[in-house]
Write a protein that binds this DNA or RNA. Sequence first.
DNA 1: AGTCTCCAAGTGTCCCAACG
DNA 2: CGTTGGGACACTTGGAGACT
Length: 399
Amino acid sequence: MLDVFKHSLSATDGLPPYTQARIIDLISNQLIKARPYPCLWVSVDAPGSWYFNEIKRLIKRRIPITILSVDRAPIDEIDFRPYASPSIMQGLENPSISHPFRIEDHSIKASALRVLRIMARLKTAHTAEITSLAGFSETHVRTLLKELKTNRLIEWKRIGKYDGWEIKNKGLRLVHLSWNIPKGVHFAAYRREFRYAGERHRRVARMWRAWLENAYRGIEIWESWTEVSVRYGIPDALAWGIYHGREMLFWLEVDSGHSSRKVMERNYRRRLYDAYLHAKEWGIQIVFCIMGPPWVVEEFRFCIPHLFPNLAMIGHDWREFGKLPVYEIGRWQEDLEGTQFRRMKRSEGKLSFDPKQYPAKPKEKRIKLPKPKSIKPRFRIESLDDDYDGYQGWAEREE
DNA sequence: AGTCTCCAAGTGTCCCAACG
DNA sequence: CGTTGGGACACTTGGAGACT
């Protein structure tokens, strides 16, 4: 007799598809240990097609698994892959993971949990950043944060230059529970972000959602994540939603400009090609945005190997929040001339500082390291497996 | 100057009961 | 039987004030 277990997830859980896929793998591993012939039914609640397709692509199939949208149930064994024996359907009456998370069992509102989940990925953050990622109003997020603080799930403390929020262990445990992370496994995916490197870089990436909503009227962002792996490259931020009735991805790279042009060129050629492959694979359009100081944005045009049919490339001054150039698929657009800073510069004459006369720093030295554990190359190109082992390494070191 | 907090009022949606 | 409107709820908007 075989067993079918059900695992439900939603795109609004605060995790990108890659991380959800890792959870599914962890659950599979757990089931292998617990049962002789387990099968897994994964129920995915997500709009559009990209999220669903990514989950499907990213999971490892160690046991028979079926991935279905939330409104469907497996009908028979051929829904599973690899194939399961027909007898599994006997267990399908009311299958589930041992104790699936139900929010009603906990004294927390759905909106507060959403904020807490975001905190779990960020670890420490300022209110504006959480607001942007949550997609709620600022005041509402504030009240939610206050509630979370009263429940001792997060705390108010000094983060860098200003005060901010940090998730506590209790909060982390609740979030892990809410994601149905099996007990006893190392799951430190929330440490995707480096903590002390590049204040501004991190800030811009976390504000990506709010930035887009400000710049493009009528855009609907479903979710936005920072430092997310999409197999092909790791965008600093990735927003997913619809614009003009079309499902799209908005890929952000923030570049503070501390690398040589050669390194820049090599990195962006690779990254643009990655984005192109991803867009092609899923038949969607991607807007690839570079943000940084003006000279970096200007330099970017020389890093474009050629124009891509499903990729719009835009560049913008990272000091000017809430604005972006109008994009056009298959083209490169920047709006440096239109920014308040450029106008100012022109009226004042030449800048006294010309970054181009200074030698470029090697890439590895661009991150300041107050703590040794924040060592993390900014642009890593490695396989998924390496990446995942990385998580575990981090988790072990910190626990 | 840039943040965060508190407060009051306003919008939009859903449910349900009363009314024509 | 359909519609109407009150209440609850979740969230937004805007403004005053305080902290650093």
